[in-house]
């Protein structure tokens, strides 16, 4: 496939994302012009539309942008770190680790959860982030040596960690009361329905951390693709970079699981498509996947809200339906490219 200039790709995404955002605000059970937000006539219709936009659609749209961008960036970073295009937070058990950590906090941290919603959310977040860190760390240690990651070990450890996490989830639900049960069931499938401004603020804080920390690792990630030793020879402080990247991505994935649940495959599909379009150079890839991930989740959630309107589908189901075929394709192509023992 002929490569596109990264400037062209990012430029078009910079147009596409705001367009999708406006469309997202406008489309729904009732069609609303986003311009209503700036009107102030006080007419009853207008006030109603403003309420729908500011309390329902706007936070949800912003949430889709933040989560989509963060997950796609985390996917790209993990794939660089593992030197493997199949690494995705949901496939290698990071999301399920986060869910288990979050359920643990919901059930056993219940006393702290009573108070302020933001505080309660952040306690659950701590559990989720800890679960996510544990999962990435385990998968990384199990599957990576000096020369790279073994795909089979990486995916198998993802399966194992997923199994352990779901067993723990079952264990925690056994102890949970009905309110806790409802909260836990949110992790089962990703859903942006519950997006509130409090949750948006939490996710925005995490996205800011990503935005602040990751740019300095663009070149290091490029060097990583050669292998850890080569990255070291190129003057990269490998151990430090690994630790920080694992920490930052686990933070973002963990918190995203807390606010919207497990949205699978965004981190796999988006970097894959962009790498094909403009190459694996992280200096262009990271901003590119952030924009594309935001756009993809916006569109997916727009479809989730409208396909069977007035009812809703969880957006997580749609991303799986789109993502799974891409995953199969990657697996088959990978098998064709690599020698059999590498699989």
């Amino acid at each position: 496939m002929e490569r596109l200039k990264s400037r062209t790709v990012i430029g078009s995404l910079l147009w596409l994302l705001p367009l999708c955002f406006l469309a997202y605000l406008a489309i729904g059970p009732s069609l609303i012009s986003p311009l209503v937000l700036f009107g102030s006539s006080g007419a009853e219709d207008q006030v109603r539309d403003q309420v729908i936009l500011t309390l329902i659609r706007l936070p949800r749209a912003v949430m889709a942008v933040l989560v989509g961008a963060s997950l796609a960036v985390c996917g790209a970073v993990m794939q660089g770190l593992f030197r493997n295009p199949l690494a995705d937070p949901s496939l290698i058990g990071v999301s399920s680790g986060a869910s288990a950590g979050a359920s643990f906090m919901i059930v056993f941290g219940a006393s702290i959860l009573q108070g302020n919603q933001l505080l309660g959310l952040s306690v659950v977040s701590i559990g989720a982030v800890a679960g996510a860190i544990l999962a990435v760390f385990l998968v990384y240690r199990l599957s990576t040596d000096r020369y790279g990651t073994s795909v089979i070990t990486m995916l198998l450890s993802g399966v194992a960690i997923g199994a352990v996490a779901s067993a723990l989830n079952n264990l925690f639900t056994y102890f949970a009361d009905s309110v806790m049960l409802r909260r836990i069931s949110v992790w089962e499938m990703g859903n942006l329905e519950g997006a509130s401004w409090e949750r948006v603020v939490l996710m925005a804080a995490v996205a800011l951390v990503l935005l602040w920390r990751l740019p300095r690792y663009r070149s290091a990630l490029n060097a990583f693709l050669l292998g850890e030793s080569d990255a070291r020879y190129l003057g990269i402080d490998v151990e430090w970079v690994k630790k920080e990247l694992i920490l930052v991505t686990a933070l973002a994935v963990g918190v995203s699981v807390v606010v919207v649940g497990n949205i699978a495959f965004v981190g796999l599909v988006v970097p894959h498509i962009l790498r094909g379009a403009m190459g694996p150079d992280h200096r262009a890839l990271l901003p590119g996947v952030a924009l594309a991930g935001a756009t993809l989740l916006l569109v997916a959630d727009m479809a989730a809200r409208t396909l069977i309107s007035p009812a809703e589908l969880p957006a997580g189901i749609l991303t799986v339906l789109v993502g799974a075929p891409v995953f199969f394709y990657l697996l088959i192509r990978n098998r064709a490219l690599n020698n059999p023992e590498k699989m």
């Binding site: 490569r3 295009p85 790279g148 292998g227 694996p280």
Partner: peptide, 16 residues
């Protein structure tokens, strides 16, 4: 100042 070429390099990403 010092460049090192290892025995084996594995690069599986589509860099030019």
């Amino acid at each position: 100042l010092m460049a090192i070429l290892p025995q084996r390099s594995s690069l599986e990403f589509p860099f030019t």
